[in-house]
Simulated assay, not measured.
Amino acid sequence: MVKLIQKRLPQEVSSQVLMQIADGEYPPGMSLPSENKMAEEFGVSRIVIREAAQLLRNKGVVEIQQGRGTFVRPLHAWNQTDPQVLLALLRAGRLGSLAQDLVEIRKMLEVEAAGLAAARANEEDIESLRTSLDEMQKTVDQTTAYVRVEHQFHIQIWQAARNTLLEYLLNSFSEVFRKVKEQVYDNNWEDPNRHHRALLAAIKRHDSDAARTAMEADISEFQDEIRQALERGLRKQRN
Rank of each mutant, 00 (worst) to 15 (best):
Y185E: 01
E41V: 09
S45K: 05
A92Y: 11
Q20H: 06
N36F: 09
L166E: 12
E25C: 04
N188W: 01
R120I: 04
K59T: 00
R8G: 07
E221M: 11
V17K: 05
F71H: 05
R120F: 03
M1H: 07
Q183W: 04
R50Q: 10
I226N: 01
G96C: 07
L129F: 08
R227K: 08
S97E: 13
A113C: 12
D218W: 07
S97T: 10
R227I: 05
K37G: 00
V13Y: 11
N187D: 06
F71P: 03
D101P: 01
V184S: 09
Q20A: 14
D207L: 10
L129Q: 06
M1D: 07
Y146L: 12
H196N: 15
N193E: 05
D141S: 13
H206I: 03
R162I: 00
S14D: 07
P192G: 02
Q16I: 13
Q80N: 12
D224V: 01
S128P: 01
E135G: 03
N163A: 11
A22K: 04
I49E: 03
R73N: 07
A77R: 13
Q80V: 14
A119P: 00
S31K: 15
R232T: 07
E41K: 13
T81N: 14
A211N: 06
Q84M: 09
Q223M: 02
R227Y: 08
S174W: 04
A113Y: 07
A214V: 03
R57H: 11
K138W: 07
I21A: 05
A202R: 04
R238C: 00
K7E: 13
A99D: 06
R120W: 08
D134I: 12
E225R: 01
K7R: 14
A202M: 12
D82G: 05
K179L: 15
E135M: 14
L90I: 11
H196R: 09
S174R: 08
F42G: 02
L55S: 05
I203K: 05
Y26W: 14
L98V: 11
R68M: 08
A117H: 04
A117D: 11
S45W: 10
G67R: 02
H195Q: 10
F71K: 00
A217Q: 08
S132I: 02
E123K: 02
R57A: 15
A99S: 15
D141V: 03
D23T: 01
L166S: 08
L32D: 02
E216T: 02
N122V: 00
V13N: 12
R232E: 10
T131D: 13
V62L: 09
Y146V: 08
E175Q: 12
H154S: 13
R212M: 15
V44F: 09
R205S: 01
S128V: 09
V72G: 00
G93C: 04
P83D: 10
G233R: 07
I64R: 15
Q137N: 15
H196M: 11
H195V: 09
Q156N: 15
I105N: 10
H151I: 01
F177K: 10
E167T: 15
F71Y: 05
K181V: 00
V111C: 14
